[in-house]
Amino acid sequence: MSTPALIGLLLAVGIVTYLYRYSMIGLFASRSLPGWLHALCRHIAPASFAALTASALFVHGGEVSIALDAPKPWAALIAALVAWRTRSVLATIGAGMAALYLFKFLL
């Protein structure tokens, strides 16, 4: 993406985010938000992270490729196991990167 386009994108996201933050303390008086908004917000983060991870692991140049000799999915599997056992973000990243280097060397 060109730098001017990126600046425009970041400004747009920044403005939208600021409007969210200012919405209920400056723009609208109503403070009881509908329950579905709470429910929706609970699922947005898991859905986004899962979609982006699946895409990073199995989509290359707009095509799905699931190969047994690709190092990244295996490294991600190790990382997921470490994340599940330790619940630590840093340990997950450390284990995942170490596994990636190992599998790149082996596969």
Binding site: A56, A76, T92, I93
Partner: peptide, 17 residues
């Protein structure tokens, strides 16, 4: 391949969520 740390972070956050 340091950019791989970003999806790894998503994996960590997913297991927490």
């Amino acid at each position: 391949d340091i950019d791989f740390a970003v999806p790894l972070t998503f994996i960590a956050l997913l297991t927490l969520l």
